[in-house]
Design a protein around this nucleic acid. Structure first.
Lengths: 254, 254
DNA sequence: GTTGACAGGTTGTTATGACATGCTAATGTG
DNA sequence: CACATTAGCATGTCATAACAACCTGTCAAC
């Protein structure tokens, strides 16, 4: 065997990736590989990590803080830092549908139903998710049917602001991940999302798309996603079929 | 007028509350009082705050970081720190029901329907939200009807682990905030929650409690809440009436 | 045996300092 | 006037240092 688990990864100081970020990635990877038994034990102390990787304690703490904000570890004064248990996995509807389904070990599918360009955000979504000044301008609209392992799961209507994505054309849309496209071409990534979730009955045309009966109980989610700089990234209305459940994992309280 | 908006609050160094936390509270309060116009402008720079409050830049940054993690501000390198827009308000079902409804300017109501003690967590909730080793022991069960302005909104079943709340008795439950009781007597506070949300039809007994028709579409939420140290705080199943929408605000992506 | 004091290790808080990186607006140049 | 340059200011990263607060296990005293 040439690979050795104890092989210690090093921090590249010449890299443009910050040291704390590199350390966070290393720790995240190591934690993911732990058994349940090992998860009950503390991680190496800040002092140990500092010496091991040749970093100051401030940098080590920055790495641990970033893992803590993602809900992967917690720290207890006087005791140490510990991995958390991951309790819920599945589809949240908040991240990239493609990525979430794949991570769940299933096969995502997407059918583009319609695309268009509109001068203003439709009133139907504007009244659910308040629109700030200057946000309601020209949008690109995209209607998709989402499938998991070939089964229709949701009907999604998305509006993308042309102000944020200049030169975005309906023709750019493919079956692939929309988020990847936006990241590659405009370097923009979603950072936060607000959502409204409510129960409803399936309208006839939605029922037909989801292969359910009209009037069946469905879940309707309205989302607005923003970048780290609080720019509206997209607005989405999703209608999920009965029997499907949304999972909201690691929501920070207080 | 004796009150002056420009009256500058000071940091109490002798307080047991950390300086960065005091500063974060001050800034949060000031940001909340800003007009929409003022929100577009940058906050004072880190250097300014450092001089104004007599704190090091590290401490100022710590305060800003804590506000950033709550989604109240964002920082842009080379430009400054800015307040974010608050887009969604309402009831998330994740925090204290009492507190959320009050903050929304409405009047919360609670009717205790039943209380009991059980030796094990019921299988119905255990299969929705996985139970780790040692978590399924004795629980105190609480069934409540939730009202907003007198209108029945949800039926909630909560299970609280006796391991975390020794001496908790069904008789301790009142119409007041359960979270306040737990914080006061055991010093424990919820930090994270995982949830599963799905559409369903109202069962007859639930329909009667919510004053809706059997078969009406309802929203069912299963939640597990944990403390900062990843101990299970409570498990809850909530059934919400049609027309009511859950809000998930400021969910961190990536 | 139980209790209490204590030592040692851990995270929490805070300071000072330095340099890197990115943005804005003023400046200067053609 | 239009445009490139640049100085200054903003946040980002990282180091060293010190003390506070807290937890756990050890060991002595009762």
């Amino acid at each position: 065997m040439t690979t050795d688990i104890k092989e210690r990864q090093a921090i590249r100081r010449s890299s443009n990736v910050p040291a704390y970020s590199q350390l966070a990635d290393i720790l995240e990877q190591q934690i993911a590989a732990l058994t349940d038994e090992e998860r009950a034990r503390a991680l190496p102390s800040e002092g140990d990590l500092s010496r091991q990787y040749g970093l100051s304690r401030i940098t080590v703490r920055q790495a641990l803080k970033s893992l803590e904000s993602k809900g992967l570890v917690y720290s207890a004064q006087g005791r140490g830092s510990f991995p958390t248990l991951q309790r819920v996995t599945g589809i949240s509807g908040f991240h990239s549908f493609t990525a979430e389904v794949r991570r769940n070990g299933q096969e995502p599918g997407t059918v583009i139903l319609a695309t268009s360009e509109v001068d203003r955000l439709p009133a139907s979504i504007a009244e659910k998710l308040p629109v700030a000044e200057g946000e309601g301008g020209p949008q690109v609209h995209l209607r998709r049917l989402r499938l998991i392992d070939g089964l229709p799961i949701a009907v999604e209507d998305a509006w993308l602001p042309k102000a944020l994505f200049p030169d975005l054309r309906p023709a750019d849309f493919t079956d692939g991940s929309l988020y990847s496209l936006l990241a590659d071409r405009w370097g923009l990534e979603p950072a936060w999302t607000d959502a409204l979730i409510e129960p409803d009955r399936a309208a006839p045309e939605v029922a037909q798309l989801l292969a359910i009966d009209p009037g069946d109980p469905v879940l309707v989610a309205w989302r607005v996603t923003v970048t780290a700089e609080d720019k509206v990234f997209e607005r989405v209305r999703s209608i999920y079929r009965p029997g499907f459940s949304l999972r909201v994992a690691r929501y920070r309280l207080g």
